[in-house]
Nucleic acid binder design. Structure first.
Lengths: 142, 142
DNA sequence: GGTGAAAAACAGCACTC
DNA sequence: GAGTGCTGTTTTTCACC
C-alpha cells in the first residue's frame, strides 16, 4: 500500500511539508503531477492525516514544558477525556498502559501557570509531573 | 513579539500548514502579502521551526506505538544521545527530570520489532515501556 | 506515470498609513 | 513598522496521452 517512493515522499514532507511538488519531484526524479497524485492518494487513504508545524515553545512565551502522567479517579474517566481535550496547554495526549491512564505533554508560561494547571487536573486524577529539559532531533514526525 | 494576529495565523497553520496565504488571509481579514510577511518573520525569528505532517502510524505498517522511559547507565550518556538520535523508530525524544533521563515515543511493526528495539536500548540504559492505546485530539502541534 | 496549457499562488518591491 | 497592490515567475490543477 505504501511503497518505497511513497516513503521517500513522506520522509521529505516530514522535514518540510510546505515544499512544492516540483521540488519534491526533483529530489526523487518524478514529475510534479505524479508527486501530487501520490500525495493525494496518501491523504485519501488516511496515511497522511494532515500538515502541521514545529514551534519554538519558548519563543511562543511558554518557558516551561512538562510531561504529566495521569492516574484517573474511578468514575472520572469520561470527565478526564473531555477536560484533557479542552486544555490549550496540552500539546499531545495519549492513553497508555501501566500505572497511569494518560500521558500528556504540556506547554506553560511559568511555574505559576503550571501550578494552576495541576490544580485543574487534581479534580479528576492524580498527576505525576516531569520537566522537559530539552528535545532531541527536531526533524521528526508526529 | 508574537501578537494576537500571529497567534491566529499559527493556530490556522497548526491545523493545516499547507493552506495558501490567501486562504489564511480570508479567515483573519488580512491580505495575502501581509500573511506572507508575518509568516516569514515568524520563520526568521525561529518561532516557526518548520513544517511537518501527521501520519497514521498503523497505516504506515507500524501497529505498535510505545513510550519508553530510559534510565541511562553511568558513563553511557553520550552513547545514549547518539544512539537515540539515530533510530528511525524514534518519533520524539526528550530529556526529562525524575527517575529516568529520557522519554521517547517509538513506532514499531510488531512485538518482535519491539523486542529487538529493547535489546538495543539495554546496552546503555534501563528501559521502562508503556504501550500507547490511542492518541487524543489529532489536531495539535509539536 | 508523463505532458501541456490555463488558473492559481508565490516572491519581491514600491507605495501608503 | 505594518499593511496593501502590482508584476513577473513559479506552482498547481486539470484534461488528455
Amino acid at each position: 500500500m505504501v511503497d518505497t517512493i511513497d516513503r521517500k515522499i513522506i520522509d521529505i514532507l516530514k522535514i518540510n511539508s510546505r515544499l512544492a511538488y516540483a521540488e519534491i519531484g526533483k529530489k526523487i526524479f518524478l514529475s510534479p503531477s505524479s508527486v501530487r497524485e501520490r500525495i493525494k492518494k496518501l491523504e485519501d487513504t488516511g496515511v497522511i492525516q494532515g500538515y502541521s508545524l514545529r514551534l519554538d515553545q519558548a519563543l511562543m512565551g511558554n518557558n516551561l514544558e512538562v510531561f504529566v502522567m495521569l492516574k484517573i479517579f474511578s468514575g472520572k474517566f469520561q470527565t478526564a477525556l473531555t477536560e484533557i481535550e479542552s486544555y490549550p496547554e496540552v500539546k499531545e495526549a495519549y492513553r497508555i498502559t501501566g500505572q497511569h491512564n494518560f500521558h500528556i505533554r504540556v506547554a506553560l508560561r511559568d511555574q505559576l501557570h503550571l501550578q494552576q494547571f495541576i490544580d485543574k487536573l487534581v479534580t479528576f486524577g492524580e498527576p505525576t509531573t516531569h520537566l522537559i529539559l530539552s528535545r532531541l532531533g527536531n526533524e521528526k514526525t508526529l
